[in-house]
Design a protein around this nucleic acid. Structure first.
Lengths: 329, 329
DNA sequence: TTGTATGCGTTATCAG
DNA sequence: CTGATAACGCATACAA
């Protein structure tokens, strides 16, 4: 109970023998007489003064904080996103308020309300609720989901990635391709992975099949799908493009249990660019999302919102990366 | 520029025809006449009022925010920790201020100063700087690193984990063991993994070798170490306990390049309990850290710091989990 | 019970 | 350029 509370600007002013306003100016780097500045800085050091950001926020109505709404940090792709967004914010002297939705649509809505209590200066959100109502009085940027032209969306070139995967598989000698994904019925940017893939197959006159599962569906349906495609101990598909690296990893294990060899019998390309332990080799051959660029784009957009000339869709280029599940590895 | 700013308690009071103080009481759930409460709640709903947490923080000198200082979120173990700590905080209506040090010792120090500007109610830190000076006027909890009896440290039972690994390897038929790690010279809780392993080997009269690399050392030294232990195409160690799952994964790849089979020729146990994509199967056979319990312990400790009866070391039990790199998988 | 008045730490205005 | 003072939104002690 004897905790003497942290020194304030008034304490510094008294210690330095100057006025309160002078201290404020020194702290904020505004022009001040040299001898005054010296006295103030000395007093600050002596007292170990740190400015109180609540007081500052209250006064100037700005918190230097951005909220990031995202399902979790367990999924390595989200973890990477969180990391780079935080670094991009830190570089600009902004704090990050992290909100995990756990894919819960009601939580997505609640958080949007909740972070307003904290008077965050902006929101970056990766959500799944199609009916989300976006506040229009606070800078808002979404990732991978387009709401309207007035809500900037940052995404990687999902269509181009699907297209690239199909071309790559052909280039690697595949004769018949398959696309496999799982995900909500929701039409979001990642849905375009399939569109690009299909477009490329059609363009190349490459035969292909599509297998899409909805979110709750049992995984065994994939196994059934693959089993159905076995003709005399070989899969009649020799190249698979799979919606995410995570799913690709699971599918590969199914294939191995079916005694099919990857990449000898069937080549596999995933999507995301996940690496083992975050920084080692890629988990599978994959289309890599430019996570750092995505993070930078989100941050610059959410912070420059007062300029009304931000594009409504920012689409960043992807790259192919061999990772052991294709014959070029 | 025509942004009408968010409504305040005064606006609500005016709208409801009551006094400012009454609104405050309603918002904070203090006893208020029923008809007043109704009027206020109606006004709040009508105006879409959200209380301003800066004003509140300034007044009561409490931010409902805890800082988490950690190297990054790319390492899956840290990502898991961040996730569970955030969930534990959210459950108690606390916010998390995330600070990534990138293993930079000076950043660790800077952040400790920096978060005090934000008047966080406490700090949870996983750091590497041995000379870190811990503030004594703010609740502080460390993970995996013991500073002094006045700074609570939460860790899993690293010694017990090392002990368990050695016993498990013996149980699985190993005749000669090896311990491999990489890490700073710093003595922290994870260093005890080796101690427990060595103690168990001595106790069981099990022959063993230790190979420890310092942080910057070239990885090739591990390869040399292993190569030195090859006797007529077999490793003369048939069980390896490795400091982390991440390193275990890398070592296994080295072994495979050396044409040694895991687990047939050599069994491997890691430490941490990392799973593929956060929720699939374990990456290697491993000693699992109870991350959720660690997170809960950190949060309850940092929040209950005003009770001076917190233990100075909270040691949580670990478990063995087979993951394909031992013969029990 | 309800209303009023004060101060938390800061920034900004305005008169010296 | 400096110094006194008001206001930001809220909680609370105190008066009604």
């Amino acid at each position: 109970m004897h905790e003497k509370s942290a020194p304030t600007m008034a304490d510094v002013a008294r210690e330095a023998g100057v006025a309160l306003g002078t201290v404020s100016k020194v702290v904020n780097g505004q022009p001040v007489g040299e001898e005054y500045r010296a006295k103030v800085e000395e007093a600050i050091a002596r007292l170990g003064y740190q400015y109180n950001s609540s007081g500052r926020a209250l006064r100037i109505d700005q918190t230097n904080t951005i909220a990031l709404i995202i399902p979790n940090t367990i999924n390595p792709y989200f973890a990477l996103l969180v990391h780079h967004i935080n670094m991009a914010l830190e570089k600009r002297n902004y704090r990050m308020l992290l909100c995990f939705t756990q894919y819960d649509q009601s939580r997505e809505m609640e958080y949007i309300q909740m972070v307003r209590q904290n008077r965050v200066d902006g929101i970056i959100a990766l959500t799944y609720n199609p009916d989300l109502v976006i506040p229009d009085d606070i800078p808002f940027v979404t990732i991978d989901r387009f709401f309207s032209v007035s809500v900037p969306c940052v995404a990687s070139d999902n269509f181009g990635g699907g297209w690239l995967a199909a071309h790559k598989l052909k280039e690697l000698g595949c004769r018949k391709l398959g696309f496999i994904r799982v995900g909500s019925t929701l039409t979001n940017e990642p849905s375009k992975r399939k569109d690009g893939f299909v477009a490329a197959c059609v363009e190349m006159a490459m035969p292909f099949e599509v297998m899409a599962l909805e979110d709750g569906a049992p995984f065994s349906q994939f196994e059934d799908f693959l089993a159905r495609h076995v003709k005399n101990k070989k899969l009649d598909l020799d190249g698979l493009f799979i919606g995410t690296d995570s799913l690709a990893w699971q599918i590969i294990h199914v294939l191995q249990r079916m005694k099919l060899r990857v990449p000898e019998d069937v080549q596999v390309i995933g999507f995301d660019g996940i690496r083992m332990f975050g920084d080692l080799e890629p988990v599978v051959s994959t289309i890599v999302q430019p996570v750092q660029e995505i993070a930078e784009a989100c941050v610059t957009t959410v912070l420059s919102k007062h300029l009304s000339n931000v594009p409504s869709l920012i689409c960043l280029p992807v790259q192919y990366l061999a990772g052991g599940t294709t014959k070029d590895s």
